[in-house]
């Protein structure tokens, strides 16, 4: 995990620091006076060699210091921390919807494999995968926020301050991501259930007279959970940074939107900081999934 983060951080730094053009000029504006440009260059440390800047940045990163945002004029770590609740709420709520949908539809479809129900679920899941989420989001906003004013058009409310407003703000974005991610999980649950149900232990259990329901709950679901957990974990990781588009459409002040703001404003520190935090969250979720594996399947062990 640590090496991945280091490589991601390095790659991000290198990529963003070889941008053609002078950042100080970009910040000050093309018709700025030379002394203003020089002042900005000194302020953001752009007058030092790139290797020094890199090592400095890395050392600061180790201390949890992500630098100062040039466009928002605040410490990046604070900006990121302020955006985390919205992103985490959206990611976990969406994954809850997606998981519930995936398990329900996937097992419904697997138990009737080959039937019309199964075929319809498979096509529906393809539809869920193919809908551009920004388009679905806009359509839902027209329908359920503008035409029928059930949900708010834009924004976010903190859970601790007003749980009801929080839920109303998150309902539509959660639905958009839930449909997309749920489609993936539905297909996966179906495929892994079908695979497990063809195994010898299922036949043995059936031979002993165990009921279908018990076989499914006690044996099959447990084994089928492993691939589902892998992909679910990956998706949660994706969402921590990958809800960028949905955050943008629904005006949710999350990490992804902060990153976009940074990119639009050419705010180096902000972009670097946001990317590193997103990669960190992504790697963290993956580690968590690995730990969960060993709980679900005692056969899996990791060398220390």
């Amino acid at each position: 995990m640590a090496p991945t983060i280091l490589v991601v951080a390095t790659l991000t730094f290198v990529a963003l620091n070889v941008v053609p053009g002078d950042l100080a000029v970009m910040l000050a504006g093309v018709d700025a006076r030379a002394e203003d440009v020089a002042r900005l260059r000194a302020l953001y440390g752009l007058d030092r060699p790139i290797v020094v800047r890199y090592l400095d940045w890395l050392a600061a990163l180790g201390r949890g210091d992500l630098g100062i945002s040039s466009s928002l004029r605040a410490p990046v770590a604070e900006l990121v921390a302020a955006r985390l609740p919205a992103t985490l709420s959206l990611a976990f709520a969406s994954m809850a919807v997606a998981t519930a949908m995936g398990i329900a539809l996937g097992s419904w479809s697997a138990r009737r494999a080959g039937s019309i129900v199964d075929a319809s679920v498979l096509v529906a899941s393809q539809v869920g995968l193919a809908v551009p989420n920004f388009w679905l989001g806009i359509l839902l906003l027209i329908g359920f926020a503008a035409t029928l004013p059930i949900f708010p058009l834009q924004g976010y409310a903190a859970l601790v301050r007003d749980p009801w407003a929080w839920a109303r703000h998150l309902a539509l974005p959660t639905l958009v991501i839930g449909v997309e991610r749920g489609a993936v999980l539905t297909r996966l649950v179906r495929a892994s259930l079908l695979e497990e149900m063809g195994r010898d232990y299922v036949r043995t259990a059936r031979g002993k007279g165990v009921g279908d329901r018990a076989i499914l709950r006690r044996h099959v679901l447990r084994n089928a959970a492993i691939p589902v957990l892998t992909v679910g974990g990956l998706q949660l990781g994706y969402l921590l940074g990958g809800a960028i588009i949905v955050e943008q459409v629904f005006g949710i002040p999350g990490l992804g939107r902060l990153l976009l703001q940074g990119i639009y404003a050419r705010d180096l520190a902000l972009v670097q900081g946001a990317v590193v935090v997103i990669a960190l969250l992504f790697a963290g979720v993956n580690v968590l999934v690995d730990v969960l594996y060993t709980r679900l399947d005692p056969r899996i062990q990791y060398a220390a």
Binding site: V7, V8, A15, L240, L260, I263, V275, A279
Partner: peptide, 19 residues
């Protein structure tokens, strides 16, 4: 290849285009 996979979703594409 692992490094490319460490950027979730479309993030890498966004970074590349922004650079």
């Amino acid at each position: 290849i692992d490094v490319l996979l460490a950027f979730p979703g479309i993030l890498l594409a966004i970074l590349i285009v922004s650079v």
